[in-house]
Write a protein that binds this DNA or RNA. Structure first.
Lengths: 157, 157
DNA sequence: GTATGAAACTTTAGGCTTGAAATAAAAAAA
DNA sequence: TTTTTTTATTTCAAGCCTAAAGTTTCATAC
């Protein structure tokens, strides 16, 4: 489904796409770094922990470790460590699954839920500030561009 | 310079910006993960190593370790390790700086330059493929959106 | 010349990340 | 039932990343 003719000389578009990618990466990395910095400085936590807590907050009944790693698109071993650390701090816990002694559900504790509520509010405000230059129509435009990239991605598989 | 009135109720735009950010992060992470996967699978290397090699390739005379970490926006200690590993494999080397025994220049070896040339060509082709859904005008649009985010960013500091 | 402070770099501790190996339990096959 | 395979999770090794502490060298002030 690629639009490029393999026999054609390198199109100038190829260079433009590369420049765009580098620019996109730079901007998103910068925003992400800012969020990480604020999470660390103002809330003594990290983005991966925030992501795990966000996933668990959406699923109050808990998620299996494997569901969690699927959801977050990270490896199994990765979430093991993060949930370990959240558990040590009393923000998460593991509960046995009825009828399957291999599996465990990770859940937020009440303290974890309270902590996440604060984090989520701060996070939304930060993002709102970082993207404040974009108004409604521009946001639409951006969604549109992302959808194009994503749908092409699915073609490729 | 923020357009939001702190006394106003949470604007719906705030939620839209958050949704956009999550979507943006998802798409860029996916593209980045794809590039990492291909670098590993097809060229037995990593994105951080590629980034260091790209910086050194742009500066044939070499870069001080601190210039390198400034350029890549990562910590000093970080580049120490990456250059160490590139050096172990004969792709980079450190040369003393005339007149300052504290400093060292990191440079690519001829083998490193050759390896990078291959990597860079493959990388450009991958990005071209991943962003193939974007034509010239859309690329312009995207640059425009990124410029807005960036320029607002500078306001905030 | 000596002392003080700054600069360039490395080392260290701790968290994140992956892929691969290990463990344990469940499910399927024999 | 016993064996085999699959599934859920953890552990491990190795690289990436940061902030903070440590080392060496340079520059400046005295």
């Amino acid at each position: 489904m690629s639009q490029t003719n393999p026999n054609a000389p390198a199109a100038p578009l190829s260079k433009d796409r590369l420049r765009l990618w580098l620019r996109l990466l730079k901007v998103t990395s910068h925003v992400e770094a800012d969020l990480r910095r604020r999470l660390r400085a103002e809330h003594a936590t990290t983005l991966p922990r925030f992501d795990v807590m966000a996933a668990l907050a959406r699923h109050p009944k808990g998620l299996r470790m494997s569901e969690l790693s699927d959801f977050l698109r990270v490896s199994n071993g990765n979430v093991t460590g993060i949930v370990d650390r959240l558990t040590e701090e009393g923000l998460a816990l593991r509960v046995a699954v009825e009828g399957d002694r291999r599996a465990q559900l990770a859940r937020l504790t009440p303290a974890g839920e309270a902590a996440f509520a604060e984090l989520a509010a701060a996070h939304e405000a930060w993002v709102n500030d970082l993207l404040a230059a974009l108004d409604g129509p521009m946001i639409e435009q951006a969604f549109d561009l992302l959808t194009r990239i994503e749908s092409h991605e699915k073609d490729r598989i």
